[in-house]
Amino acid sequence: MMKPACASGGTSLVASEPDRLSALPDCLLHTIMSFLKARQVVQTCVLSTRWRHLWCSVPCLDIDIDEFNTGSGLSYLGVPHNDKNWEDFEDFAVNLMLHITLKSLVIDGGSNSYDDYLVITAPSVANLHLAVDVVCFHAGISLNEMPCLDKASILLLGNRERGMESKLGRDQFKLLCSLSTVVSLELSNLMTMVFSEECTTTCKQFKNLRNLLLENCDVSDDFQTMALFLETSPHLEKLTLRHCTISNGTKKWISSQCRSLNVLRANLKLTKIIYKDDVCQLVQHFVHNSENLPNNQFEFRKVD
């Protein structure tokens, strides 16, 4: 009836009689660590051989700038005024990222000012969720390679209205390119201008992409956004368009320039279109190109 105890760690490594604490299984030591702040958690690595690598596998870390507040300089909203504290905090956080295998990264909100480019280096991340307001990230966000990326969802708030004012808004294409290894991708609130002319030449292949969901995206760019994805994602199986819009007055989608589906997409099995109002243009577009999608099935669903 007892739950099997979780893997007990190397008591055999300790020559002398081990202390009672170190004899606890890893999962309980991790629970204890979860009540400590990140820096102290890392410091446990010098306690003994048993503790050397224990911290690397903690399920969560509480990185708090308060732990670096040396007391000099007043704390305002938890942020020390002192530059030295900030540098220590940054240095710690950067080193931490190099030592741990971060699997899941959620960035919800936040901001940067004009000269602080946010560079995210987390090479082991499998799940990425980025929900930010483009206007808050004036200086932009750059993602370094994430070769293990499985699922990513990118939500850019305030994009439609003020995207061009922000570097993050203008660099959406670069941001997408750094996700090129992803298997399942959700993009919300992208603008038409996400793909410019240069993109078609510089874009990497989304060679693993199987599922793509575009939500609240403006596809009135001759469907170029979609086209680019279809061209660069040879293994795409499922495409979902949820509440995607076509701006008024854009009729160019019928034009000969419309090259969305010029490439044969034999892998595409399902295209789901979830819509509120008018779906006519989208349908026409796909029907027009359906000979390029021999195995594709369409599914339409209207929601309120």
Binding site: S16, P18, S34, F35
Partner: peptide, 25 residues
């Protein structure tokens, strides 16, 4: 767990080893 964490909190590794009765290295 919280009680044990409190015994560790704010201590240097040497102090932790002493407090928690780790064998001498």
């Amino acid at each position: 767990a919280k009680k044990v964490a409190d015994m560790i909190k704010g201590k240097s590794p040497m102090e932790i080893r002493r407090t928690l009765g780790f064998p001498d290295p």
